[in-house]
Design a protein around this nucleic acid. Sequence first.
RNA 1: GGGCGUGUAGCUCAGUUGGUUAGAGCAUGCGCUUGAUAAGCGCAGGGUCACAGGUUCAAAUCCUGUCACGCCCA
Length: 937
Amino acid sequence: MSANYKDTLLLPKTDFPMKADLVKREPERLAKWEAAGLYRQILDARIGAPLFVLHDGPPFANGDVHMGTALNKILKDLVVKSRSMLGFRAPFVPGWDCHGLPIEFKVVKEQRGLEPAEIRRRAEAFARKYIDIQRGQFKRLGVFGSWEDPYLTLAPGYEADIIRAFGKLVEKGLVYQSKKPVYWSTGAQTALAEAEVEYAPRTDPAIYVKFRLTPESEAAIGRSGPTYVVIWTTTPWTLPANVAVAFSPNLNYLAFTRNGENYIIAQVPNLPPELEDPLRREPTTEYAQVVKPEVMASLRYKHPFLDRESRLIEASFVTADTGSGLVHVAPGHGKDDYIAGQANGLPVLSPVDDFGKFTEDVGVPAWVGKYVFDANAEIVTFLRENGSLLAEQKYTHDYPHCWRSKTPIVFRAVEQFFIRIDAFRAEALTAIDSVNWIPQWARNRIYGTVESRPDWCISRQRTWGVPLPVFYEDSGTLAGSERTPIVRADLAAKVADLVENGGTNLWFEKDDAWWAAQLGLPAGTSRRNDTLDVWIDSGVSHQAVLMRHPELKACGGVADVYLEATDQHRGWFQSSLMTSVALTGHAPYKTVITHGFVVDKDTKKKVSKSDQGTYKKPMEAEHFVGKFGADIVRLWAASVDFTNDVPFSEDSFARTSEAYRSFRNVLRILLANISDFEAGRQEDRKGGGHEPGMSHIPDFMASCLKNGATTVDRWVLSKLQGVIATCRAAYEAYDFRRVFETVNQFCTVELSALYVDITKDRLYCDAANSPRRRATQSVMHACFDAVAKLLAPILAYTADEAWEFSGKKTSVHIEKLPEANAALRDEALEAKVDEWLKLRAAIYQQAIEPARQAKTIAKSLEAAITLEVADAQHAALNADKAELEEFLIISELTLASGAEPVAKVFRSGQPQCPRCWRQQPLTAKGVCTRCDEALPA
RNA sequence: GGGCGUGUAGCUCAGUUGGUUAGAGCAUGCGCUUGAUAAGCGCAGGGUCACAGGUUCAAAUCCUGUCACGCCCA
């Protein structure tokens, strides 16, 4: 019999599948979007709307998209999609950073001995290959943008703008030339990057050398006899370039006497026997005295074999681990030395040629032309003979070698070009404070780095990059590196115009004569193959993209948002800021959003590309998209606190899938419960006498609510307004996690556990057109509409799918987010329902659950409840008795007197209606009154 | 070593200006339902708020230090 009644019910009905099958369905939807040109449709729907530009920081075009890159791109997409749905015209022009060492290195490794032009051809092919791969993977993640027309830093137009930017910097007098040490391969006669250096064990002489103080300094120490500072070095060949001795502010320095000579040395472990004994004495004995830091800083000494006087400087890189605690400083031959030299105004000497041989500048004629590593032994002998050598040891250490020629590296100063930061540092700092930094501490971070950063070295001795548009005068026999550079803004502009059409390959394919002729320079003018630092490439995108791209240029070179990982404070955020301030005087962005790195959930260690060798777990976005679907990856990105490190594991996605399921099922049950709503609306219109124009939902909804809404309907509708308001504000604040939490809470608690559960009875059992059924459907319609739209930026595929199943012909992504309707908010009602929820909790805890456990009842609908509450509450509760029974999903509620709410189950005397299962008096048909009316006559 | 950060239940997160037994969703356990069913509902367990000091009548919340982790620099 009951089966017959089941056929009379209005059960939920929808074709929207419960099983998501994202891995299979998402690509189909993606294809559909592409065919329809959805990205273009969205922009077209916002013609005339205010522009919102999120400027894409270009990822490097090598390798697959890993989770860190995926997180970054998804966050950008969340911004773009939500701003679009907030009513902005939000184009997204993706870009790629194409030049640079990693690609060049890879190409050169594959085949050696290639000409620069060929290296560049292969590097471009390599970059383009990965652009295609990454483009496909980004699109698959559901990221919308002009994927068929991205910006590439290798595009001739972009390259031309890089050169133009350089020209403007020259024009403003910000570019200068100076020497700086680089890793230099004497085997390959070329500068190397850190990545091209391999470390291998090598044994060098480690020598202790005494440097005699000047008479004034000896007097300052005040001991009779000559006084020396004792340095330690493993590179004797750098001694000709010595211009200072560094001491540490954290070490204790002693002067002691031995064999009639005084030595200054730090109290350090591991001294050779020759120097050890005296230091074992107490510093207070007559043999030793402490030399205070301020005295140390005042000392001057004579170079051990050159006619030069230098001084002691304080430097934090000096340690006690090795040596004497006094470090010989040669700014032309070491990175630390160079930095210390810059800080102390020391000259940069580097008397070594391309082949690692001493030049005439070495100052000792016998050594000129000697390979420096061969000269080591000779220098040691020389020092021993002139009495400067105190001790000599063999020292085995990991020493950098050229990856290609396997020769030991030398640090060698070569001419480089720099941008003078001090000329606009103050302006840059001011610009920083004009920007909205999210999170706020990012402001301090970039401020600190800009405040203390040294001048920007913008030249590189590389091949895969944009050439430095500098020429050199014809100076007869002078070597290229010694010729006078011609650095002119007008020349850069002309080079840029040539590059605009021909690309920078021209620089590597045409010869000096061609270039001289093109630029009207004297014959004999030459070029070098220096390139610009790749941070200039991406750093001028505000000129090359924001000022030029037809979709973006209305922003005037100032993006609304830059959004990158935290490492970009010293990277793109800063390179963009510095170039923009130097060129235009202002920052290129209004808001900068930083996100953390993806870290392993279990170890909290970071998961990055460079760990690929040791990190065995999968981390390519493709792996997770292929296993869980893009919407799960997107939901994960939206559910974490991206301002911090983002925990990540295969496991996280399994959990995210659970949250996804609850969203999907809620959308599904809402759709299923309103499947006959449109039809009902038609009937209602006919019978209800609405104006013909009142066909849109809010009016219809209003009429339904007026006719049939119960407390719970108004309550959900009120709650929904709060959800909408919270989510809109959260999207505006880029707080996607709050959107996730808010909608999740609403779907699981308010909708699934309460509203949908409570209203099943009326939706399934009432007559199709009963006012309260229609009221509930109109509320569910509003909920579906809002939830689908609010989730659309996050669940790009699923929200669109649900939207389609609701009968819409266009994509949800063209829609605008719903707006909260203040008239539908009812705080008093929310407070009242909160009280009901407390009663509900008490009743379930005290009565229904124990009865279930005791098998007295099965489902709550079988329960009749006696509730003891204070007499004062009886009137109010009695007035709502029918609604409360429905709200509690029970058959009968009886009130009794009591101090605290106490609930008891009792057996109802009423029979169970076989149709709706409530315990109610039955009619002649054998069903309850309501079901009697709902059944067809 | 320096700068900027982070550290609340198994997981992801809330915790307003310091103030009642620290909350939610998911996961887990035990049940119910089989008219959302590769679904749904109920109840329950689970946290010395990284650690150690301090300020206060009162601290997850303020101060100091330690540890761990991240980014950048050295």
